[in-house]
Amino acid sequence: MTEMNMVDAINSALDNEMANDKSIVLLGEDIGEDGGVFRVTDGLAKKYGNNRVMDSPLAEAGIMGVSIGMAVMGLKPILEIQFDGFSITTLDQVYNHASRIRNRSRGLYHCPITLRCPIGGGIRALEHHSESPETFFAHIPGIKVVIPSGPYEAKGLLISSIRDPDPVIFYEPKRIYRAIKEDVPETAYTIPLGKAKVVREGNSMTLITYGSWLRESLEAVDELKADVEVIDLRTISPLDTETIINSVKKTGRVVIVHEAPKNLGVAAEIIARINESAFYSLEAPIERVTGYDTIMPLASYEKLYLLNKEKIGKAITKVLSIKE
């Protein structure tokens, strides 16, 4: 065990996997000598060579497109797209090809690609550098979308994503890249995709979240000294409905927290599933704490858009106070 932040943990996952599997190649802008704009791939080019850690020309759609060609010829490309806003450029190739090649070829070809990309606001960056576009990808059949909540989670989930024989979009909440330190094993370990984690057990309410807001959610629960069950989704597609439903059946009350805009966000889908499978267990309307349905403001008003433990706490109090 070593104390690692999320950048270290992801770097360690890449290092572990590359050491064991020569078919893994890294492709992205400035990921070689520079180690990526967030330094996630630091040292890997030196260790594994420039033919395995490839500094790519500046073209996100191209990065995704050529990766498909590499993947169907037996490589396992791990891509880095520099910022969330630019990951949208890869959508055409993800939606029209990466997600479909196994199906289209009746399993003769498949695309073991992991697309890594920072996500979300909170670092006072330029426009397009603070977005939360996970829903766009989660809506695509054939694509898995993973968003870790901290260093330990990030390493285990990334190794599972790399070993997965199908395409995975792996969004890394940039706000907590260096904000959380945890004990993380230096050797490889996996955390299964598609399984949520009950981070804290509780009986009077279920709080469902993923990514960077797990931390503030737990703080809000602590401050209120509320008996809340907290679920970290880990994977937003496929969604672990079973864990959600089991919890809701127990607690009857739900708050869902995510930074992405409310309209058609992950919370909307969760509410639909609760409606289908646990409607009669509900004791109060479900509350959402999400980003607003507006453009992510530039840095001067970033804080106003972003969530915080007060907003989350308010929703918890509201849902708990509703009488049956």
């Binding site: 395995r52 191209g62 498909i68 060609g69 490589l75 190739q93």
Partner: peptide
């Protein structure tokens, strides 16, 4: 949209 796949496959052959 298949042209990048041909480029990527050719990159794989170069790597291999």
């Amino acid at each position: 949209s298949q042209i990048p796949h041909a480029a990527g496959a050719g990159m794989a052959f170069a790597y291999q």
